[in-house]
């Protein structure tokens, strides 16, 4: 059995058929070749609109085709979530460049890491958050605080969010404060250590 694929997406056994049994003679192309599974052509396009949400908590219900999701309460719409302004990197390259990490060192999600990307990274309990810490019930659902990376200055900031309290290195976070690796952000019951990837000498062009 030698499985071949024709240009129209039909696979067939070339030991049995000399040409694709599903294509009319009119549609036949000379360009048929055995498709080795490992042998793929590549493409240069970076255009990727669909994204996979990595921050989803592992306890998603397996078959929500039949039963409603067990999500706490109702989803409150945050205008910022729905209407994400695309940062400069995404516009040009269509891919998200990661710029640093938060690592949870205290709290229900202790041991977990979260990636930071260029622009705003909002921390909150809601699944729609950039940094979704769904297990921490004392954390506010929407942005408790945010970590912002500014590519122009190559700097990170912890930014206070409206009506939320968060702490940076033990002090109440107010306004925007520059971050360095090793700084500890506390929100709800959780503490996160900030680690920068982008730094002096390491910047995405």
């Amino acid at each position: 059995m030698a499985i071949v694929k024709c240009n129209n997406g039909h696979f067939y056994d070339s030991d049995k058929y000399s040409q694709c049994p599903h294509c009319g003679i009119i549609d036949m192309d000379d360009d048929e070749r055995t498709m080795a599974v490992r042998d793929m052509p590549f493409s240069d396009s970076d255009d990727d609109k669909t994204v996979f949400l990595e921050q989803m908590a592992p306890r998603v219900v397996k078959d929500y085709g039949n039963s409603p999701m067990g999500v706490n309460g109702s989803y409150m719409s945050d205008p910022d979530i729905g209407d994400k302004t695309i940062g400069s990197y995404e516009m040009e390259k269509g891919a998200r460049f990661m710029v640093g990490w938060l690592v949870c060192i205290t709290g229900p999600e202790r041991g977990r890491d979260y990636r930071l990307y260029q622009g705003f990274n909002r921390i909150g309990r809601d699944y729609g958050m950039d940094i979704a810490v769904m297990e921490d019930q004392s954390l506010s659902r929407e942005a408790a605080c945010a970590v912002v990376y500014d590519d122009r200055s190559n700097k990170f900031y912890a930014v206070q969010q409206q009506s939320s309290t968060a702490y940076l290195n033990g002090e109440l976070l107010a306004g925007a404060v520059e971050l360095s690796s090793g700084d500890i952000i506390k929100a709800g019951q959780s503490e996160f250590e900030f680690i920068a990837f982008c730094r002096e000498g390491r910047i995405w062009e």
């Binding site: 793929m40 590549f42 240069d44 990727d48 996979f52 390259k93 891919a95």
Partner: peptide, 11 residues
């Protein structure tokens, strides 16, 4: 439907 940057979605 492939997704991912740098043309890897197609792969």
């Amino acid at each position: 439907d492939g997704l991912g940057g740098h043309g890897k979605g197609e792969v």
